[in-house]
Design a protein around this nucleic acid. Structure first.
Lengths: 169, 169
DNA sequence: ATAACCAGTTCTGAAGTGCAAGCAGTTGTC
DNA sequence: GACAACTGCTTGCACTTCAGAACTGGTTAT
């Protein structure tokens, strides 16, 4: 066992935990895509994560206390991954990442619409979304309209528009 | 030329650009530590970055348009690194990273105080800090009290307290 | 019984990391 | 003008991590 950290800086420690090319992608998919099984995360991955990387990240994130794994009663092999409270509190960070990426990277319109809504909604929307995630992942009670539903609906709307404009072109 | 991206998701594209263990550390040091030369970044690095990694990251970040390099008129070999506008707009992201790390990692008190102030100051403080960075790195005019000065003063205060309590213990 | 599905594991080469040493050019000191 | 210290890097090497592909043993549906 070694567990030595490079420094006690909170930014550094966050980077030591999440600073790689896949950890936040997995959390994003669980959070925004509500993908809860290994196969869902593997096959529906927009970025095409490799199975060994996915297995490794699920293990690490679980050990780091950002995900939990429980058995699916409907299938003896299936595991259901859930976000923990620390992972749910990454919502503002992911919202800022999306907002920055939308401005400074060649992000596609379809995949940016959720980031845009989350940015425009601001902290109140983030809080509502976090409450919703607590309900879905931690079994906490929830009230109010669904942020996840609104984000998903907006995404599907813009995808539909895009395929319309393509077929009309 | 290859430039292929894994997906058009803004979070993914941000991760492709900054998702490693050192890029944001370098930006943090330029931004909060006002370290503008290679040697400053190398020798005063809290985390002990290796010289080849630093050289590589400075090159990549410059190519990615997050840093610029100009010659120091006082020394023919010295280069001065400055943040660009996209890098300055990482302030809210770094503030959220600091806020999250402060809650969910074993961050030291000394190195957390700046994150705490930046979190408590919220978006208005971030904007003031960004204006200040524009002045320092882009030569833009600035008005109002110095955020960087306040963060630095708070940090030095808590370091002094800490060494007091240590010598008194 | 058998085919499809489940969560991974194993192999391989490529890429990134971390350490130590070295480099040519520049500057300050005597 | 000699020399040491300092400048921004580069090189070499061992080691770890990443990424793609094939493969595994167990489970479920037909």
């Amino acid at each position: 066992m070694d567990g030595a950290h490079r420094s006690g800086c909170p930014i550094n420690l966050t980077l030591e935990m999440l600073g790689d090319r896949w950890s936040l992608i997995v959390i994003r998919d669980v959070m925004f895509g509500n993908r809860r099984h290994y196969r869902e995360l593997l096959n529906q991955s927009e970025e095409g994560i490799a199975s060994n990387i996915l297995a490794d990240r699920l293990k690490r994130l679980t050990e780091a206390g950002l995900l939990t794994r429980r058995h699916d009663p409907s299938h003896k092999q299936k595991g259901i991954y859930s976000l923990t409270e620390p992972a749910i509190q990454l919502v503002p960070l992911l919202a800022q990442m999306g907002a920055w990426g939308r401005r400074h990277t060649p992000a596609s319109r379809e995949l940016s619409i959720r980031a845009q809504l989350l940015e425009e909604g601001g902290p109140p929307m983030w809080e509502a979304f976090m409450a919703e995630l607590r309900w879905m992942h931690l079994g906490a009670p929830v009230a109010g309209p669904s942020v996840l539903g609104a984000l998903q609906a907006a995404y599907e709307r813009v995808v539909a528009q895009h395929s319309d404009s393509r077929s009309n072109a």
